[in-house]
Computed example of a mutant assay.
Amino acid sequence: MRALSRIALTTMLAAPIAVGTGVAPSIADAQDFVRIATAGSGGNYYRLGSGLASIWNDTVEGVQASVQATGGSVENLDLLADQEVEIAYLAGGVGIQAYENTGTFEDRPADRYQGLRSIGTVYPNPQWFLAMEWAPEIESIRDLEGMRVAVGMAGGQGEAWWRMTMDHLGWTYDDIEAEYTFHDAAIDQVRNRQIDAVVSPDAPGSATIQQMMDTGFARIIDIDEDIIEFFDESGLDYPYTVSAQYAPGRDEPVETFASPITFSTHEGVSEDLVYELTKSMFENRERLIEVHPLAELMTIEDALDGLPFPLHPGAERFYEEQGVL
Rank of each mutant, 00 (worst) to 15 (best):
E86K: 10
S280W: 11
G235Q: 07
S280E: 12
S50P: 00
M147Y: 02
E133A: 15
D202I: 06
S270E: 09
S280K: 08
N101Q: 12
T104L: 14
E290G: 00
A185M: 11
T21Y: 01
A186D: 04
S66R: 14
M12F: 06
I187Y: 03
P201C: 11
Y238P: 01
G49K: 05
R35L: 15
A303G: 04
R47N: 05
T208L: 11
I7K: 11
Q114I: 08
D167N: 06
D305V: 14
I27S: 09
A303Q: 04
L79N: 04
M213A: 07
I17M: 07
E106D: 09
Y240C: 05
G216I: 06
I220E: 03
A8E: 15
A30H: 02
S259E: 11
I119T: 07
A244N: 03
Y89Q: 08
P124E: 11
E255N: 09
G146N: 12
D174I: 01
V190S: 04
Q83V: 10
E179V: 05
R219N: 07
P201K: 08
P239H: 12
M281Y: 02
Q64W: 10
M298F: 11
G323T: 07
D32C: 08
G120D: 09
L52F: 04
V151F: 00
L236D: 06
Q64F: 12
Q31H: 12
W56Q: 07
S206W: 03
V23R: 13
D251H: 03
M166Y: 08
I289E: 05
E320A: 14
L325R: 12
P310L: 05
S264Y: 02
I36T: 08
T181H: 00
I27V: 13
L307V: 05
F231R: 04
D78Q: 13
A303C: 07
T208Y: 15
P293M: 03
A110H: 04
A69V: 06
F129E: 03
W161L: 15
A150F: 02
I195M: 13
D58I: 02
P16N: 06
S234Q: 13
V63Y: 01
A303S: 13
D222R: 07
E179D: 04
N284R: 06
T172C: 01
T11W: 03
Q322A: 12
V85P: 02
R117T: 09
E225A: 13
G72E: 02
I187F: 00
G155T: 10
H266M: 13
D272S: 14
Q68V: 15
I195F: 08
G93I: 03
A258M: 13
A39T: 09
A303M: 07
T256D: 11
W162C: 07
Y99I: 11
A18Y: 02
D224W: 01
A8K: 12
A247Y: 01
I209Y: 06
E86V: 13
E177Y: 06
